[in-house]
Design a protein around this nucleic acid. Structure first.
Length: 291
DNA sequence: AAGCGAACCTGGCTGC
DNA sequence: TGCAGCCAGGTTCGCT
């Protein structure tokens, strides 16, 4: 589910309900997700007010009034839903409220002093939450993390410098969160399609011998921006289980150029889209448009 | 030392 | 209907 646009969509959905509110009760239904919860996690949260709900890379960052930050990662299947005091409701980000047998995957419940409760459900438990004191940049999760793709730090010059001399394929180079923070398997495929670059090309094609950006690098940076901005505008992408409250499948999936379209015609040239496996993950590309 | 495959965990879909 | 096999948005670890 969650690459940068999905996490940003969740953030925008949750922020109006969480910012300015304080935790009145925190319930952990198990001792760990991907990692154990930190010591006294629930006790430390209760009474704290959320000053802002931000995003860094694929993390939701709740800035607390005691200076600490609650960092939350959705993993593969993590999702937040909210309920208002008077009954079930859904956040503007349009996520399905889980009921029935999925309830066994409700792992964290936050009750807030504005009457809102927030539920974290994560079937595969690749998600996690932690509390960070002090400088974020020095926390193991965030030191060495790459640039925000939607900030002005992502420039052709930056990307060329990072790519220079690298033999690794563009696919894995772009998935590396130490280079760019927030891209995932879907948007890497989409960005490479837009840039006309085959995922198997070595990352070094982005740089000249003097480590300056090539034309391909310029195209790629532009493509990354367009793909992410479009996805955020559309309310996050949507794979099967990213459906909206009204049961409608998500909005952005129609506009995928290559992701999940094996054998279907390229929207630009009609040639069949191909799927290959790189580093154990699927890559999709048009064999004619991407060289 | 970069780069790859495996591992973490569960559910959904396909095909026999 | 049952069951085996394969696939999935992410990240980290350990072996070349």
């Amino acid at each position: 589910m969650p690459e940068l646009p999905e996490v940003e969509t969740v953030r925008r959905g949750l922020a109006p309900f969480m910012e300015g509110a304080a935790f009145t009760r925190v319930e952990l239904r198990r001792a760990n997700l991907r990692f154990p919860f930190p010591e006294r996690f629930a006790e430390r949260l209760v009474g704290r007010r959320i000053e802002a709900l931000d995003r860094r890379a694929k993390y939701l960052m709740a800035r607390l009034d005691d200076g600490a930050t609650l960092a939350m990662h959705l993993g593969m299947t993590g999702r937040f839903t909210i309920e208002l005091a008077g009954g079930a409701a859904n956040i503007p980000g349009d996520f399905v409220y889980q009921t029935g047998r999925n309830a066994i995957h409700d792992h964290v419940l936050f009750a807030l002093d504005n009457g809102v409760s927030v539920r974290f459900n994560d079937a595969r438990r690749f998600g996690y939450m932690t509390l960070i004191d002090g400088m974020l940049e020095r926390h193991p999760l965030f030191e060495g993390i790459g640039v925000e793709p939607l900030s002005n730090e992502l420039t052709p010059e930056y990307l060329a410098k990072r790519a220079a001399g690298k033999i690794a394929p563009l696919k894995s180079f772009l998935l590396d969160q130490r280079v760019i923070a927030g891209l995932g398997n879907i948007y890497v495929s989409e960005a490479l399609f837009r840039a006309g670059l085959r995922p198997t090309r070595p990352a070094a094609v982005l740089a000249t011998k003097s480590r300056a950006p090539t034309a391909a690098c310029e195209r790629l940076v532009a493509a990354i921006l367009v793909v992410l901005e479009e996805a955020i505008l559309a309310g996050g992408s949507s794979l099967r289980d990213f459906a909206g409250v009204n049961g409608a499948p998500g909005y952005f999936q129609h506009t995928f150029g290559v992701y999940g379209r094996t054998g279907e015609p390229c929207l630009q040239c009609g040639v069949a889209i191909e799927r290959i496996v790189q580093s154990g993950r699927s890559s999709f590309f048009c064999p004619r448009c991407q060289r």
